[in-house]
């Protein structure tokens, strides 16, 4: 059986908000290491990889591996009933038909109990090769969100150019063109506000802004975001949170 108690409902609520528009149904794979999810969008352009490590829960118990098939829209509806500060407990039997969710207020004067039907999802896991990326860019998550939103007003696509001079986000469309260049900064007092660029070679890749804007729904989960890129391979966008991560992979646009 699974029993996982999470101190802050907000973590799960924000996580669901960050993935539910990309993925409709997904298996939450529960093991003694924690709860993970890997799912692609319908067009196979983007992939979401979530890990909530066991040590992020207190307590966490999972006797044997379970795949909880969940409609993310349904889970999101149920989680709307949880306050951000509530303590959430997830429970499932071995071979479950239902997932039980309990929301307790901080001072335990209100306990809400929900049961959600599970579904059978036949999901293929893709093998994601270990990649030593040529460019690793860490920047404030809010900055990345703003850049994607602003450039999406100009074009459907953005070209990200990482070089020793900085990282340049550039878009060109019918109304004109625009770009934002970030230089490396150091803000030792607030590392989350710094931009760092580690580069082994220059990288230039073009991506759909529709997907990137979607990924930035994870902004409330983390102060910083890391973009990892190599020429001709998918982009990795990672939001690290306490007790886990939310990663997105995005296939590049290629020359016709």
């Amino acid at each position: 059986m699974l029993e996982a108690r999470l101190a802050q409902a907000a973590v799960l609520k924000k996580t669901l908000d960050a993935i539910k528009e990309l993925v409709t149904d997904a298996n939450f794979d529960c093991s003694d290491g924690g709860i993970s999810l890997q799912a692609m969008d319908n067009s196979h352009v983007a992939l979401v990889s979530l890990l909530l490590r066991a040590d992020g829960f207190e307590p966490y118990r999972c006797d044997r591996n379970l795949a909880l098939g969940i409609n993310l829209n349904s889970l999101s509806k149920v989680l709307r009933s949880a306050q951000n500060e509530d303590i959430i407990t997830l429970k499932a039997a071995d071979d479950p038909d239902n997932l039980s969710l309990t929301f307790e207020s901080q001072n335990q004067d209100r306990i809400s109990e929900y049961e959600m039907k599970l579904m059978d999802i036949d999901q293929e896991h893709l093998g994601i090769p270990e990649t030593a990326y040529a460019a690793v860019i860490t920047m404030p998550a809010a900055e990345f969100q703003r850049i994607c939103r602003d450039l999406s007003g100009i074009s459907e696509s953005v070209t990200i150019d990482a070089s020793k001079d900085g990282v340049k986000f550039a878009s060109a469309g019918d109304i004109g063109n625009g770009s934002v260049t970030l230089k490396q900064t150091h803000n030792p007092e607030e590392p989350a506000l710094s931009t760092s660029i580690e580069l082994s070679e220059s990288v230039t890749l073009t991506f759909s802004l529709k997907y990137l804007v979607n990924f930035t729904k994870a902004t409330p989960l983390a102060g910083a975001v890391t973009l990892q890129m190599s020429n001709d391979v998918p982009l990795l966008v990672e939001y690290k949170m306490e007790g886990g991560y939310l990663r997105y992979y995005l296939a590049p646009k290629i020359q016709d």
């Binding site: 692609m40 067009s43 196979h44 352009v45 983007a46 992939l47 293929e124 896991h125 893709l126 093998g127 994601i128 090769p129 074009s155 459907e156 696509s157 060109a172 073009t206 759909s208 391979v233 998918p234 992979y249 296939a251 590049p252 646009k253 290629i254 020359q255 016709d256």
Partner: peptide, 14 residues
Amino acid sequence: TGKQSTLLGFFNKP
């Protein structure tokens, strides 16, 4: 602005 590729060419099915 180029053709959208998919992840299937990059990531392997097990």
